[in-house]
């Protein structure tokens, strides 16, 4: 088991190296440069040339790449051209914001999705099931950003129940006050995100539970004289939840990437918004750092869910 994990981690190293080179080259290949227009529309080309030189942007790519890697290992991802702040600090602040939103969304998603999915499957083919399925189909058929815009318009602007931008109110003071304000800012985007996230979980769990319900091992359990409610507890739910538990490891790392839509509509200063702006402003250092981070999170997520799966499912347990 530990051997396998260690091996998987080791395999991640070359994957990350290849990813970093690709990311670096792609960022370089993007048209434009970080200075034109951002300093002063009428800036002297010579001055831009000078800035480019200072930042080593005329060096050959492998030298730039090597510099970048060396700095990376010193915890230095460079300075953001746009924000004039170390990228590491930037990611830390934004990452924290995204983390709170992600955790909140996830708790809501699973908190609503799991019971709803089981409820629907339990009442397969009946009215309750139909209602849940109508909910999932309707939600799925509306684009996410439309829901966000409508949501913020009704609950943010019209009813004025929730703040419409930022991650924490400027007036908030004290630890408690700040926490409350943070919570206040993530309730609406979190709820709307969960509204969407649950759809997948509901549908997946519903079909898993229904499959399990009609499976041969449930028939065996019934012929043992086990009451149906115990069969649900010991056999059906357990077996249907396992793949979802494993997937959770993957989806949490996915959520950490931040939702571009949500953060844009709510002007929420998280990773998604950071990424979007970095692309708009050709903020290479930020782009490369973020893509690398996303790649890393992705690999980590896969590893995590594989580990979880191998713990909970004896069939994939590695000796």
């Amino acid at each position: 088991m530990w051997k396998t994990i260690l091996r998987r981690v080791l395999i991640m190293i070359p994957e990350l190296i290849i990813l970093s080179i690709l990311v670096f080259l792609l960022a370089k290949a993007m048209p434009g440069d970080p200075f034109t227009g951002s300093i002063n529309p009428r800036a002297d080309p010579a001055q831009i040339h000078h800035l480019m030189e200072i930042h080593g942007l005329y060096d050959p790519w492998y030298q730039q790449y090597w510099n970048w890697v060396v700095h990376l290992f010193h915890g230095d991802l460079g300075m953001s051209y746009e924000y004039q702040e170390p990228v590491v600090d930037l990611i830390q602040q934004r990452g924290a914001n995204t983390l709170w939103l992600a955790l909140f969304t996830m708790v809501l998603t699973y908190g609503i999705g799991l019971p709803l999915g089981m409820y629907a499957a339990h009442h397969e083919g009946k009215l309750q099931d139909t209602l849940v399925r109508v909910y999932t189909y309707v939600t799925m058929s509306i684009p996410f950003f439309v829901v966000l815009v409508i949501g913020i318009w009704i609950f943010g602007y019209a009813l004025n129940w929730f703040p419409t931008s930022g991650s924490v109110s400027a007036q908030a003071s004290g630890l408690g006050g700040t926490m409350l304000s943070r919570l206040d800012h993530i309730i609406l985007p979190g709820l709307l995100g969960a509204l969407f996230g649950t759809v997948n979980i509901v549908q997946y769990l519903r079909s898993e539970v229904i499959d399990a319900k009609h499976s041969d091992y449930v028939r065996t359990a019934r012929s043992k004289g086990v009451p149906m409610k115990d069969i649900y507890r010991h056999h059906i739910f357990r077996n249907s939840l396992l793949p979802i538990a494993a997937f959770a490891g993957y989806s949490i790392t996915g959520l950490l990437g931040g939702s571009i839509f949500t953060e844009m509509v709510f002007s929420y200063p998280g990773m998604g918004l950071l990424f979007l702006n970095a692309i708009n402003f050709r903020d290479y250092t930020v782009i490369t750092a973020l893509v690398l981070l996303y790649g890393f999170l992705n690999l980590l997520g896969t590893l995590l869910s594989d580990i979880v799966l191998s713990i909970v499912d004896p069939r994939v347990r590695v000796e």
Binding site: S215, D216, Y217, R219, T220, A221, H235, R238, N239, L242, V312, D313, P314, R315
Partner: peptide, 11 residues
């Protein structure tokens, strides 16, 4: 039952 693999809970 007929199919002894599916008739047992795999987990």
């Amino acid at each position: 039952f007929q199919d002894p693999l599916s008739a047992l809970n795999p987990l």
